[in-house]
Design a binder for these strands. Structure first.
Lengths: 245, 245
DNA sequence: CGCGCCTTTGAGAGAGTTCAACTAACGTGG
DNA sequence: CCACGTTAGTTGAACTCTCTCAAAGGCGCG
C-alpha cells in the first residue's frame, strides 16, 4: 500500500521536509510517517484536489507546484482563503465535521503527498512529536488567518498588495528559491480575490509599484528591486521573530 | 492542586459542557479532564486574560461572561479576531511557538476554566477522544476565520452586520439564552473593528435596521423582530447543517 | 492559428470613511 | 450621592478610495 505509485520518494530526501510535518521528528518517527504517506499522480493546472462537501479522508502535503484554497457561498461567490506551496498542509478545516469545507485547486502542475488521516492518528498515538507537529501547523494557520483579517479589515489596497508580495518573497526564500525574483502562479484576479480587491486595482498598483522602482513586472514574473522599500511601506505585525516564524 | 479555588465546580455540572471540550467524552475521560482543570477568580470588565508575547502555558475555556481576542501591530492598530462566549476555547494561536499571539480581554465580568497545556497533553495521550476534541475546536476556528475573510472581503456593510447579529443570535440560542433578545457585551466600536467598519457605519445601520422593523435597538439591548428577514438579507454559506454545526 | 481568458488603462460612480458637533451614559472621586 | 470628566453613541456633510463599466491589447492554450 505504501509503495503504491511511490516513485521511490521519501520524506528523508525531500527538500521541503524542513518546512513540512517531518520538522523535529526523530529518525524512527520519520520512517513511520514515511510509511503511511502515499504519493499521488501529478495534478494539472485547474485540477481540483478537494471539493467542499466531500467526506474527509486525508490531509495533503504539497510536494511541488502550488494550490489555492477557497470557499464558496450559495450564489457562487468565492473567497480564496490561502495559497499553498511545497511543505504546506491542506485540509485542516475538514477535521471538525470530517467533511471538506473548501475547495483546493492546482494553480500549475503540482504533486502532493497524501496523509491518510486514520493512519496518521494511529501513528501519532505512538509518536507525540508528530501530533504536536500537526497541531502546530493548525495553530500557524489560525495565526495566518488572523493576520489576513487585519489586512482585509484595516489596510489600504497598497498595503495589502505589498504585504502579499513581501509574504510570497519570504515563502520562496524559505523554500530555497530566490526572494527577489519569482513567478506568480496565480492570476491578478486571484490575488485580488484573496486580498478583497478587484483585478483592476491589482493591475493599477503593480503598474504604479513599477513606476516607483519598487518592483519590476513582466507578466507573471516579479522582480523586487527595493525589498527594504517594500517592507517600509507595509505595516509590521507586533510580534516578529528574527529567524524562524 | 486541582482543588485550588475550585469552588466545587465541575464539568459534569456545567451547563455549557455540551459546547465545550467535554463533548463526546466518556465518564472516565470527563473525570480526568475535570481533574486537571483549574478554576480561576472572576475577571472584571477590561481585565486582560492573556497578552501577545506572553509564554503559553494554558488554554482557557470561557465559563461565564464574554471576551474579545485581538491582534495589534507596531503602530497600535488593533484587529479583533473573535468574540468568545461560554464553552469557547481561547489560545490556539499560541501553540505554534508556545507564545501568545493575541490579547484576550473580558468584555464584562467573566470566569474561565484553565486548561494547563502540559497536563492536557499527557491526559490526551491516554484519551484519544480528548485529543480529537481539541483538534476539532481548532478546525472549527479555522473554518470560522475563513468565513470571516469572506465577510470582510466580499460583503457590504449591511450584510456584515446582519451576519454578525444572526451569528450572535445563533450562539446565544446554543447556550440556552434567547435567540431573539440579547445584550451586546461589546461596544459599537468593537463590532465595527471586528467587521472592518467604522463606529459611525454600525450606528447608522442599526438605526436603519430599526426603522425597517428588522430589529429593535435599546442601547446594548437588541431585540430581533424579524429573524427570517435578517437571514434573507444575508448571504448563506454553501455548506449548511440542519442541527449541529 | 484563432478564440478565450488575462491584463491594462480610462472615466465615472458610489459605498463607506473622515471630520465635526452634539448628546447620553458611565464611573470616579470628592 | 452628586458633579464632573471621560467614554460611548448618534447624526450630518464632505470627501476619497476603490469599484464598476467599458474598451482595447496580448498572451497562451487547444
Amino acid at each position: 500500500m505504501a509503495d503504491h505509485q511511490s516513485l521511490s520518494i521519501h520524506c528523508q530526501s525531500c527538500s521541503f521536509s524542513h518546512l513540512c510535518l517531518p520538522v523535529s521528528l526523530k529518525k524512527s518517527e520519520l520512517e513511520s510517517l514515511d510509511d503511511i504517506i502515499e504519493r499521488k499522480k501529478p495534478l494539472h493546472k485547474h485540477d481540483k484536489l478537494v471539493s467542499a462537501g466531500q467526506p474527509f479522508n486525508t490531509l495533503y502535503a504539497v510536494r511541488s507546484g502550488s494550490f489555492k484554497s477557497y470557499i464558496s457561498d450559495k450564489d457562487g461567490v468565492e473567497q480564496i482563503t490561502g495559497f499553498h506551496f511545497p511543505g504546506d498542509i491542506i485540509g485542516f478545516d475538514a477535521l471538525k465535521d470530517q467533511v471538506h469545507q473548501s475547495y483546493s485547486k492546482a494553480l500549475e502542475t503540482a504533486m502532493v503527498c497524501e496523509l491518510p488521516y486514520d493512519t496518521l492518528e494511529v501513528v501519532s498515538e505512538r509518536y507525540p512529536a508528530l501530533r504536536k507537529q500537526i497541531m502546530k501547523f493548525m495553530s500557524a494557520e489560525i495565526k495566518h488567518d488572523h493576520e489576513l483579517m487585519m489586512l482585509l479589515s484595516k489596510r489600504s489596497a497598497e498595503e495589502r498588495l505589498l504585504h502579499f508580495i513581501s509574504h510570497l518573497s519570504q515563502r520562496f526564500d524559505e523554500r530555497g528559491y530566490s526572494a527577489r525574483q519569482f513567478n506568480l502562479s496565480m492570476t491578478r484576479n486571484e490575488i485580488g480575490n484573496y486580498l478583497g480587491l478587484t483585478v483592476e486595482t491589482i493591475s493599477r498598483l503593480l503598474t504604479r509599484f513599477q513606476k516607483e522602482d519598487l518592483i519590476k513586472v513582466d507578466g507573471k514574473l516579479i522582480t523586487i528591486l527595493d525589498l527594504d522599500g517594500v517592507k517600509q511601506r507595509m505595516p509590521e505585525s507586533e510580534i516578529s521573530y528574527t529567524a524562524l516564524g
